[in-house]
Design a protein around this nucleic acid. Sequence first.
DNA 1: CTTCGCATGTAATGCGTTACATGATTAC
DNA 2: GTAATCATGTAACGCATTACATGCGAAG
Lengths: 185, 185
Amino acid sequence: MKPYNDTTYAILGILTTNCNSGYAIKQFIDQSLNHFWKISYGQIYPALKLIVEEGLAEVKTSSASGRADRNEYLLTDKGLNTLKNWLEQPVKQVPVERNEVLLKLFFGSYQSREQTSALLRDYQQKLEIRYDTYTAIEQGIQEHSKEDKDAMYWLLTLDYGKRTTRAAIEWCEEAHKKFTPEEEE
Amino acid sequence: MKPYNDTTYAILGILTTNCNSGYAIKQFIDQSLNHFWKISYGQIYPALKLIVEEGLAEVKTSSASGRADRNEYLLTDKGLNTLKNWLEQPVKQVPVERNEVLLKLFFGSYQSREQTSALLRDYQQKLEIRYDTYTAIEQGIQEHSKEDKDAMYWLLTLDYGKRTTRAAIEWCEEAHKKFTPEEEE
DNA sequence: CTTCGCATGTAATGCGTTACATGATTAC
DNA sequence: GTAATCATGTAACGCATTACATGCGAAG
């Protein structure tokens, strides 16, 4: 089977839900897999074009009365099989996440303690915001889509995000101690 | 100050250690910041070229007797200042890490339980190998470079890797339970 | 009458990986 | 002699972000 990139498979996957336009796909991503797979319009529309060319989906342009043109994409059997086939393939090597904070910390000896401390504080704050976002999405799913056959999988990915983020926050707290003097001021 | 990309700053940072050739930089990366900042030769050499053009480092080509040509790069004052200036800048938004495992799990309802189970097992195994690598690097630093002024910072980045990896492993264990039946076979 | 949400798309740019190309020396 | 290590570099390609370009309808 011809291989596509993971972003294309992600879109194929989203097309199995009731999101069937480029715009709807983007909306869906922003509220669900945004935390581990961001996709921009600059990728979505060219990818949809490719998907149709490859016969993985069919498009119906509905110039619905009094609405902007909307292209509806419907997965074909070939598309669904392509998705399932990809799901069966073992994952490639787990990629390393590039982390600017760690990179700066790595060269921390060229910084003042105050700077390092600020770096860690700022990072921790960002992580806490992220954690709260995960919790909010989680509650949203539990309230609105609990019945959905996919809900359990979505919650699992959120749990992953929460656990790793929590671990990072705890690291921030520990690391921070090393750059703040015991005594005040 | 003219902005460069983070990879360029990473190389600038490495030039403060006693690694001063493209080859040596690559070696250094592979044994230290590989876990949060991979860099390939395809980036290193063009970056070094730019660094010299910008006056951030000077190059001395030493055709040492009976050795392949070796370009030694030495950071200039301007180079060091550029590095320090970058260290002072607040970090941009923390990027989301793309995770193929989570992406596949997200569409898990199109997989069999066995497949999902295998996906998680495989991921856990990869994470455990990673964890062990971190531990090994950590021990290496504690044994050989404990006195280095940078050692503490390096150990901190490793601790981050260990904590977040451990959290991910624990998630795998928990998640896996949901896809394995209580009874045997 | 202007801003926001819906809706689709392209082009430029940046960045990274991979494969390719070369060649010396050293250890087995 | 041949494989590994040291050493430098380029070109093609893939992928993602960003900015740009356009236009309708509804709400304020």
